[in-house]
């Protein structure tokens, strides 16, 4: 056990799985960098250096730099998965899903169903989401609700380094296509991570704070915002539980209902755009199955329904904030 960053814990998960199982391969744009040139053969290690060090250890046959064409990356990976490999494909920014979405949702996500259950597709797609990098509207979206909508895909969204490693290993070993969401502002977050391999099963949400007054339900980066708020409002004698969903598909409905039952007041914090997102979905689930437990209306904290602004001042206003969560807490308590 030692302190590792989010970046290091995913890097370690990939490395250890590649050592354990020779069928695991990595492919994507600049996952190593420098292919076909005379320069540094591991120049990039991915845009955020998450796959750094893999090419020197495992060679170019298993760590494949691809052309800049997402449809080829995902198409190749889906085919490789169908024929027995366990590819980890790097889609880089999730904003680029548009050019390869057919391969994801209508091919990889459907193989098991279209081939009478005889085909499995152990494909892991890594992708970055979220605002905060001042990268404007084409490189800052969340988009995980779109993947969550598709039966046949599994959607994973860790909030801390420990979960990132365990969920990643589970994704690699899973026989279905998994889309693994990494928030681009989280790579330097630190936490205790075991050196050994371990897995965290999909469909088990995690209470990161215990509380009786209000339940904050969230996923990915905003879980940490909720943790921060829960710690701060304790000084005012308000006790908030925080439920980290960890995976959006499968979704741990039981833990959501448990959180509602324990508090009667729910705030869902979701960085994705507000129409048809995870917050609306969970809100509907709660009003359907736990309406009688509610002491106050369900609140959703999301960005406004606009593209992510490029202006830093506007982007800060756009994203869910601690202040916003605190105000909502005091509103539903009064």
């Amino acid at each position: 056990m030692s302190k590792k960053t989010f970046r290091e814990s995913i890097n370690e998960a990939i490395k250890q799985e590649m050592r354990r199982d020779e069928n695991v391969i990595v492919l994507g744009e600049d996952v190593a960098g420098g292919a076909g040139t005379k320069g540094d053969q591991d120049a990039w290690g991915g845009p955020m250096a998450v796959t750094k060090g893999l090419a020197p250890e495992f060679g170019r046959e298993r760590v494949i730099d691809t052309p800049i064409t997402e449809s080829a990356i995902i198409g190749t990976a889906a085919g490789a998965a169908l024929t027995g490999l366990r590819p980890i494909a790097d889609l880089m920014f999730v904003d680029f899903m548009g050019v390869c979405f057919d391969q994801i949702f209508n091919q990889a996500g459907k193989f098991r169903y279209m081939f009478g259950g005889k085909a499995v597709t152990p494909l892991t797609i890594r992708t970055m989401y979220g605002g905060g990098l001042r990268a404007a509207s084409q490189h800052s979206q969340c988009l995980y609700p779109i993947f969550t909508h598709i039966p046949g895909l599994k959607v994973v969204i860790p909030s801390n380094p420990y979960d990132a490693k365990g969920l990643f290993v589970q994704a690699v070993r899973d026989d279905d296509p998994v889309v693994f969401f990494e928030h681009k502002m989280m790579y330097d977050d630190e936490g205790e991570v075991p050196d050994e391999l371990y897995t965290i099963p999909f469909g088990e949400a995690n209470f990161t704070r215990e509380g009786k007054d209000v339940a904050l339900i969230s996923m990915g980066r905003t879980v940490n915002l909720c943790n921060q708020v829960a710690d701060e409002v304790k000084k005012d004698n308000i006790s908030c539980s925080v439920l980290d969903l960890r995976t959006l598909s499968p979704l741990d409905e039981d833990s959501i209902l448990e959180a509602v039952d324990e508090t009667g007041r729910v705030i869902i914090v979701d960085e994705s755009s507000p129409r048809c997102n995870v917050a609306t979905d969970i809100s509907a689930l709660i009003s359907d199955k736990a309406f009688s437990s509610l002491k106050a209306p369900i609140k959703m904290i999301t960005p406004p329904h606009t593209p992510v602004p490029f202006s830093p001042a506007l982007e800060d206003l756009y994203l869910p904030s601690a202040d916003n969560i605190k105000k909502t807490i005091s509103n539903i308590l009064n």
Binding site: G166, P194, E196, L197, Y198, T199, I200, N206, F207, E210
Partner: peptide
Amino acid sequence: TRDLVNEVLKFKRLD
């Protein structure tokens, strides 16, 4: 507590 259960699960989930 849930925390205690999670601690045990962390052990149980090691390869």
